Computed example of a mutant assay.
Amino acid sequence: MLDIAAEKTPDNRPAIVICAWDADEAAWDPVEDLSGQPWSPAGARTVAVPADDPEALATTLSNHLSDDRTRALLLVGRTCRSDGFRMQMRAENRSLDGGRRMNIVGPGIARATAPTAEIVRALNEAGFVADASSDAEEDAGSYLLYRILANLQEGADTPAIGLLRAPEHEADASVQRAVKTAAQAMARHLSPLPRARAY
């Protein structure tokens, strides 16, 4: 009898980690139907990471990015500073409470590595009002963005890391669609993994 599990072909699609950092945020659910399979864009696969304490979450997300099969990270949260969707392009070296520098020797600012212009263009083409901003909001999202960017391993291929903010009162269905649009734009920039990296 054939061993079906053994015959499964390796999944050589690069991974995009998607994380809504706020435990109260219910908008992003990667499982669309009763199959239990998470949604994935063409050419990539998604890995959903649930919300957690920011310190623990920063470690979890950095651990995912230390695996060279993970080529992108999309943080998802809300903004109270815009009526449209916003890609945050940078984060400041600030502690979680904002009262001091997080890293005494780290740079003052870390810049997102995601293809921001392409993501904003894709969101606008999909009918969303969207822009990019260097305005770093004082919340766990900015803290995570800086921590993760500052902790990237040197010498490795730089993964695409971005932070998408949805308007504060945007409906969950709209946020779901915007996250998928952003992930699809990111996936278009990812090349398949070499065979040696595939599962």
Results as ranks from 00 to 15, higher is better:
174 S>R: 13
26 A>P: 01
9 T>S: 13
1 M>V: 03
44 A>S: 11
1 M>I: 08
115 P>W: 02
14 P>L: 01
119 I>E: 12
111 R>E: 12
181 T>A: 13
149 L>I: 13
18 I>V: 15
11 D>Y: 11
170 E>A: 15
147 R>G: 13
128 F>Q: 04
145 L>I: 08
30 P>I: 09
159 P>F: 00
27 A>N: 01
121 R>A: 15
26 A>D: 14
130 A>G: 02
115 P>H: 02
145 L>H: 02
45 R>W: 06
176 Q>K: 11
16 I>R: 02
4 I>V: 14
59 T>G: 03
44 A>V: 06
179 V>I: 11
43 G>E: 02
80 C>K: 09
26 A>K: 13
149 L>F: 11
138 E>V: 00
191 S>R: 06
165 R>T: 07
27 A>W: 02
195 R>F: 07
55 E>N: 09
127 G>E: 03
53 D>A: 05
89 M>Q: 14
65 L>P: 00
34 L>I: 04
77 G>T: 13
129 V>E: 15
32 E>Q: 12
143 Y>S: 02
57 L>N: 01
133 S>E: 06
182 A>T: 15
83 D>I: 00
67 D>L: 00
117 A>S: 04
112 A>E: 08
193 L>F: 06
5 A>W: 09
113 T>L: 08
172 D>L: 00
3 D>S: 13
91 A>G: 12
168 E>C: 08
45 R>Q: 09
72 A>S: 11
56 A>G: 11
176 Q>V: 00
85 F>T: 12
186 M>V: 15
35 S>Q: 10
105 V>S: 12
176 Q>I: 02
14 P>T: 11
67 D>P: 00
191 S>I: 00
91 A>N: 04
10 P>Q: 01
163 L>T: 04
32 E>C: 06
66 S>K: 03
119 I>M: 09
169 H>S: 12
113 T>C: 08
193 L>R: 04
160 A>I: 06
32 E>M: 03
25 E>F: 14
53 D>P: 03
187 A>W: 12
182 A>L: 07
127 G>L: 01
162 G>Y: 10
192 P>A: 06
72 A>Q: 06
109 I>Y: 08
172 D>R: 09
7 E>W: 10
96 L>P: 06
185 A>Y: 10
175 V>D: 03
183 A>N: 13
40 S>M: 00
17 V>R: 01
102 M>Q: 15
37 Q>E: 14
159 P>L: 01
98 G>Q: 05
171 A>V: 07
20 A>S: 13
109 I>Q: 03
182 A>K: 14
33 D>S: 14
85 F>C: 05
77 G>Q: 11
114 A>D: 10
169 H>Y: 14
63 N>Q: 07
92 E>M: 05
93 N>M: 07
173 A>M: 01
5 A>S: 11
